[in-house]
Design a protein around this nucleic acid. Structure first.
Lengths: 374, 374
DNA sequence: AATTTAATTTGCGTTATGCAAAATAATAAT
DNA sequence: ATTATTATTTTGCATAACGCAAATTAAATT
């Protein structure tokens, strides 16, 4: 095995990895033209990275009856860029290992009993190490570990992430505070932004260069990807779409849904605990309808600002609700009478049900992402 | 003289030009550390570009009583990257030549009598050529010419710009339709986006990496700069802030102001024609106050989406009104009760009164801009 | 079996750039 | 006055990245 990404990875190599993540298997000439370099450059680069175990190669299965040297399709080797992910729900610890395609290699979930920082991170580190062990892998087969939890970013030295949910957690600086627990490079980002990266690298947004993610969880978060890069904005507060809905009024958030259920005499405290019959019933249906209307307005705001190619709907709201919301938005023929353009594509997030995959996307993103543009 | 930018300009050279535009004069070591390369690389690059006439060098005037080899400050040579600009008002043609610092070398304004495309562009070409002549310069001393006018971009092959104001103008493709008139590379963008680039390269936004421009003209336009690059979005419709205000209702646009004056018995048809006493009177004051309130809301939307470091106010509304609007926004201590962060910096655009400078910024931007990031 | 075709590879030269040592021009210490 | 110290810039050398053109390869077509 052995780790693959050495300290210095050439700029064109980064662009190549980003391209292959985005487009999947490609021939060398296709790569060369996409990256605007000579085929010979790609030959040398690919053969080099192949030797290092980063890439794999296969004959083109669709090729039939064409003249000329048959192209060989190059793609990321699954075991080439593996990463680990840890998501901290206030009550549960979700961990996983994923390969370069975002396929789960293993996962493990555990209730959190001791909520203190050291205890949670100690547990997480042991869970990750245990999974590696069972697969016969070592920490240096991995490019890193991502940590994600609901929380607010603050622009302190080192960009710390703060949570109010978890008892007396300090402001956390990824490198300094977290690496000791995992023995590999650590990256962190809050739940919405991490989930967005998971869609970018592993989910439905692989080929999309500009999109906005609307994250519907207990609160409403969001993220924006511009030119295949996460745009964070001042103090990492870009695309905080929740803030567009006044806090005091009804809004399409999970907390608002739970409050609505409580008012309707069906008190529920966690989104996962909403009963199937209630989920299928009129209270939720009515709430969803209102949410769709509010998100239609939000989509208009997004189109007037970011004007992305797609708006992605995901989060920790129950799946059927997110599916219904996304379906209803996709069915709109126009967003608003004053909006003369086509509505954007509305996409249902593919990997939002496993929030630890968002975390696992972080090292992959931060260590190999590079703008694809010429 | 002779042109300076040869066909191929190295990537680090682009980053250097962008850096010097943004930061002004710098020493070689400062440049090296800003661009994350070795000082020796900068020595060679700078000496090379100096020989080509792109850069100039001067002793550091502030240096006094420090040990060591005295640094020499490198900056863009004024005559090194000149460009031309043409702005087409429905009734007037504004043209100019500017140097690499955005200083006007010459300007010429002329009423449009024949509004047909060929006639207008023919005139513009002759005006530009005449100005060059008078200064003893030739077309190939210039990196290009920018064309700008109010209009809608449409995503047709080649990214055409369409106008409804000007009689039977076709969809225009910069390279194919415009270059014959000017004999140099031509770039085009609508008024708001061009004005934004003028602030980025020549105005108050030189050092700002993320900002949004709110363009208050007859209509309301806008633009967003992310990582020192203009972000255009799907079909070049990003940051079309006007669309956030329903067309049917009062809105902070110049047309709305003119309509307000008409209703108040002071009919005026052009923004330049508003009488000084009316400008200072209660109708305009009241209108401005309402505009400020609406723009406060818009600023909140901008902060929840782009979260830029600054919001820039500019346009063709009368100067005193724009000054008052910008002043009032700057004075806000918070944008909204739910917005817990600091308000952004509100900046008054510096070069919006000369819209042809926006046009002149286009060649400078498109031919040398390069993300500064590492 | 020879020809055509298209992808890939190889050989060669150039450019960009890192690294370390040297040169330079100032101030500070003796 | 001379020497030491300091920071910036330059130079010499080595190497990595990559363009270009020619060669190679493996298929289909003639």
């Amino acid at each position: 095995m052995g780790v693959i990404v050495s300290g210095t990875i050439n700029q064109t190599a980064k662009r190549l990895v980003t391209l292959l993540r985005s487009e999947g298997a490609m021939s060398r000439v296709q790569i060369a033209s996409a990256l605007n370099v000579q085929p010979s450059t790609i030959t040398r680069l690919v053969n080099d990275l192949f030797k290092k175990g980063l890439l794999s190669e296969a004959p083109d299965p669709d090729r039939q009856g064409q003249r000329g040297y048959p192209s060989k399709l190059v793609s990321l080797r699954r075991e080439g860029l593996m990463s680990a992910g840890v998501f901290v729900d206030p009550g549960t610890l979700f961990t996983c290992l994923v390969d370069s395609h975002g396929e789960l290699l293993s996962e493990e979930t555990k209730p959190i009993v001791d909520r203190h920082f050291e205890a949670v991170m100690g547990d997480a580190g042991r869970m990750i190490a245990g999974q590696m062990n069972r697969l016969g892998l070592a920490a240096d087969d991995f490019i890193g570990c991502g940590i994600s939890y609901p929380g607010q970013h603050t622009e302190m030295p080192g960009k710390v992430l703060r949570t109010t949910y978890l008892a007396d957690w300090p402001d956390i600086d990824a490198r300094k505070d977290l690496e000791p627990f995992f023995g590999m490079p650590v990256h962190q980002l809050n739940d919405a932004k991490a989930a967005c990266l998971a869609e970018l690298l592993f989910g439905v947004c692989k080929p999309i260069h500009n999109f906005c993610y609307v994250w519907l969880s207990y609160g409403i978060g969001g993220a924006a990807v511009i030119d295949h890069s996460l745009y964070l904005g001042r103090d990492l507060t870009s695309a905080e779409f929740g803030g567009l809905f006044p806090k005091s009024k009804p809004r399409p958030s999970g907390q608002d849904l739970l409050d609505t259920l409580t008012r309707a005499g069906k008190p529920t405290s966690r989104l996962e605990d909403i009963e199937p019959d209630i989920l299928a019933g009129p209270i939720v249906a009515e709430w969803t309808e209102r949410a769709v209307e509010q998100l239609r307005w939000l989509s208009l705001v997004i189109m007037r600002t970011f004007a992305p190619d797609a708006i992605v709907i995901g989060g920790r709201l129950p799946n059927p609700i997110l599916d219904r919301i996304c379906g209803a938005l996709s069915a709109l023929t126009d967003l608003d009478e004053d909006y003369v353009h086509q509505p954007p594509a509305f996409l249902r997030a593919a990997v939002d049900s496993k929030p630890q995959m968002g975390a696992a996307a972080l090292p992959a993103y931060f260590q190999t992402n590079s703008a694809l543009s010429v």
